[in-house]
């Protein structure tokens, strides 16, 4: 067996062992039978809630806030990243602040946004946008900065106009980096939406977990957790697959 195949096999074994633990540990009697429910009892509950449409309004709320926050992050992050790359003083000024940005517990601003914007979808979208946009900005600026000098020289030797150099050389060459930024932005936007819904809101999948926790509906709570994790894993997996292709061609 090749090294790569052995690695894949071992990885699947680890993942399966983790899933098996979700079944075995609750049944072992090590913990509390009310709070620890075996996987085989959660899955039917999950499908029941899914078929009954219990998830639907929350799925729509989370999905809507996520798409909105991500689109806003992309629409503002790419131009801002471009400005950051274009203006050296701006980049060097903001550099220490941008590197510190993700150390700041941005969700501390969420109550503030709730107080200002009210209990609706807006604070969720704004906080998720704020969490996602900086990743897009940074990766766009890095990507444009990493364009090889050779390509720029080719452009000059062909005496392309400024706009053509940008549109034919800089932007295409920066695509993989910008995509990495958008990928991170998407992941952060999802984390932002789930986190703010979970902490304080009135709808969404994150809210569904906290609602069921507060009401002791443990099986329903686990079902909502599984839905969130399933969607997040699906998203990460799809984005990583696309990213691998982009870098392979780039």
């Amino acid at each position: 067996m090749s090294e790569a195949a052995r690695v894949r096999l071992a990885r699947w074994a680890v993942i399966l062992a983790a899933v098996a633990a979700l079944e075995v540990i609750p049944r072992s009697g090590l913990g509390d039978a009310i709070t620890l429910i075996p996987l085989s009892e959660i899955i039917p509950e999950f499908f029941e809630l899914l078929v009954e449409g219990e998830f639907t309004p929350h799925l729509v709320a989370t999905g809507g806030a996520f798409v909105l926050a991500f689109l806003l992050a992309a629409a503002t992050g790419i131009p801002l990243g471009f400005l950051l790359w274009r203006y050296r003083l701006l980049r060097r000024t903001l550099d220490p602040y941008l590197t510190t940005y993700y150390a700041i517990p941005i969700f501390a601003f969420y109550p503030l946004l709730l107080a200002v914007l009210g209990f609706n979808i807006l604070p969720v979208v704004v906080i998720s946008w704020a969490w996602a946009v900086v990743a897009v900005i940074l990766n766009t600026a890095i990507g444009l900065g990493e364009v090889p000098e050779v390509l720029v020289k080719v452009g000059r030797s062909l005496s392309l106009s400024r706009w053509k150099v940008l549109s034919r050389i800089f932007f295409p060459a920066a695509v993989p980096y910008v995509f990495t930024g958008l990928k991170l932005g998407m992941i952060y936007a999802l984390i932002g939406v789930i986190a703010s819904e979970f902490v304080l809101s009135t709808r969404g999948l994150g809210y569904l977990v906290s609602y069921n926790y507060v009401n002791f509906s443990t099986a329903a709570m686990y079902s909502a957790m599984f839905l969130i994790l399933f969607l997040a894993i699906l998203l990460n997996w799809t984005l990583s697959a696309i990213e691998r292709r982009l870098y392979a061609h780039g």
């Binding site: 789930i194 986190a195 999948l205 977990v209 997040a232």
Partner: peptide
Amino acid sequence: ALYALPKVALYPLFLF
């Protein structure tokens, strides 16, 4: 992959 998941919704497990 674990780093990138929205782990916040798992907080009830810690409360249990």
